[in-house]
Write a protein that binds this DNA or RNA. Sequence first.
DNA 1: TAGGATTATTAACAAATACTTTACAAAAAA
DNA 2: TTTTTTGTAAAGTATTTGTTAATAATCCTA
Lengths: 227, 227
Amino acid sequence: MKNKDIKILLVDDEPDILEIIGYNLSIEGYQVITAENGIQAIKKAKKERPQLIILDVMMPEMDGIEACEQIRKIPELSNTIITFLTARGEDYSQMAGFDAGADDYITKPIKPKVLTSKVKALLRRLKDEEPSEAILKIGGLIINREEYKISNKGKEIILPRKEFELLSLLATKPNKVFKREEILDKVWGNEVVVGGRTIDVHIRKLREKIGDDCFKTVKGVGYKFVD
Amino acid sequence: MKNKDIKILLVDDEPDILEIIGYNLSIEGYQVITAENGIQAIKKAKKERPQLIILDVMMPEMDGIEACEQIRKIPELSNTIITFLTARGEDYSQMAGFDAGADDYITKPIKPKVLTSKVKALLRRLKDEEPSEAILKIGGLIINREEYKISNKGKEIILPRKEFELLSLLATKPNKVFKREEILDKVWGNEVVVGGRTIDVHIRKLREKIGDDCFKTVKGVGYKFVD
DNA sequence: TAGGATTATTAACAAATACTTTACAAAAAA
DNA sequence: TTTTTTGTAAAGTATTTGTTAATAATCCTA
């Protein structure tokens, strides 16, 4: 399923928030639908059948919690993922939210990267049936894909996105050789065209940061991660 | 392995949590064992040999981290999967947990669906290890096409691509004679034109590396791999 | 939103390795 | 014996990857 086939319903009473989140999501190619209160949200949810609903907790008319409960009662939307928008630290609302049937929550203020990776992670559940394994452990390396974080022998490392994804890919199957083609497909996307040395350069950076011997070159084929 | 053959040790000091998680797991058919602190947990783990341990981080007597470390030292439990229960957002505990040898963590509050699918995912790791078609075994030779690796009588050998593919081809049907034509087709591609000695040279290199007698020449026809 | 920092890509060249050919020797077949 | 086919070593060619630095794109902050 491509992003453009995915509808996200965004519910918040502040137009600014709708604007900014909506903008970020649409950059990623999602179809964004908005609503400004719970009642509208339920109406639109029924009509549009979004795959994901992002719901502000605090809203006039009908708050997010109640809206969530209502939506959860709609059978056609049983597969819809609902996530709350909540101010940082509002613990009680998380609790109430989960009771109401929410799948996750996002705290405000929202960083675009966090938002999009969270959305991606949530949508992945749709396909996977089971929530994807967000955490990979190989040797002394821990890769937390949900939080885009890596720790190597207890030391945290921040990797740029492409490097992270490349490492992530290789680490899903240690010792398996990933063909360059395959890497391009999975990390860059099969329609993107990049020069011939791009992968090598990223590998080089990973070798620098994680350790030279973790990455093995198989000439004529590709690279593998070894532990 | 059926669910009823799987033991899960659940460790938390709050009886309520034990109750609710235990209930959900037993619905799925798992055998659930409980403990209320780290010391008890270790004792029960030794005795019952559970496949999975769900361990609360914060506990009186002995906390989850320490319990985890202790359990990891028990050789019989080396295959046991340990996952932590942690309050949302407690980042430090995650990290400490991994250092202690945990495989994953689950955040509270826990949604039954998340719990069960996570458990499923974790247990899937146990079964893995299935030999795929990517691996060929002939005599003392193991050809791993996924890892582009060869081991001959336990000794690992790295082969260049063409050699690897040539060997790979011959090994798919031991004792079958592959005509030179056929070899060219399959390894080089039918439009590539190479000189008359190319195959021989590659065979020679394989004989050097794998063993002279593995490759038999059938004059006027081609080569075969014998074990 | 300008500009400074970071990240991604490209280009150009070096280095490593793989592959092919050559030339001739050896072996087998005719 | 002559002819054909294969074995071998070394040289030569081609391909692939490593590396660096420069440039482009992007992100982030003030």
